[in-house]
Amino acid sequence: MKRGSFWSWLWVAIGGLYFFLPLLSTFDFSLRAKKGILTFVAYENIFKDPQFWSTIRFSLVIALFTVFFSILLVVPTVYWIRLRLPQLRMLVEFISMLSYVIPAIVLVFGLIRVFSGSPFYLTNSYFGTYVLLVAAYVVLTLPFSFRAIDTGMSAIDVRSLTEAAQSLGAGWGTILFRVIFPNLKVAILSSVFLTLATVIGEYTMASFIIGLKSFGPYMSLVGQNKTYESSSITIISFLMTWALMMVIQLFNRTKANNGTHSGGR
């Protein structure tokens, strides 16, 4: 028992060091913008940079659109295959998992080649590139949004809920928006915040489709030009990821506490 505990602590300690040392080093480095003293000037420089705010706003808006469209796409689809078309389940799951198989760099390659010419020309306008980026992110996050929603829906008996609502005279809109969505709140919210965490600092797709307008490529630019600011922006980005993960944790905890009466409001 004692021995098991020792090894447990050892592995956790190694993992902890692996996790914290880079963050500690980065934080330490971010404070050394002036010789001899510790200063937050590297953070000030980032926060004073209008491009920081414009890129983060841009990426946030893109992320929100991604969230919106992926929910709109995934929830009705999962609902439908559970209710009416269980034979399509394997196919939909397979398609959703495809972005595990197709690396982001390959997907963006294909997207750019297909949408840089007729009949579906998207890269010739700003709006077109935004559409392309949001679509790319929906695909990128499809595996886990599908998983989350599917798990959430398996926890509630959608068929009985639907039939109960139908027997009480509800139409499809009412069923979806007043019965199904509210009961999936936790599943949807976890998938939302995971999507945000993935999309906001995303680099690969953003750099090829949109470039410097978005936050990922902006971070990369900071790294090329400014030494200390690359560390401060790393810490900022880390804190954002951490905050989003804490929110997910919070939802899951609330769910565990009052899992018996979900829905309500």
Binding site: P22, T26, E202, Y203, T204, M219, G223, I233, T234, S237
Partner: peptide
């Protein structure tokens, strides 16, 4: 936490 900031870290 991967990508650009991880490289910097």
């Amino acid at each position: 936490f991967a990508g650009v900031p991880l490289a910097f870290a």
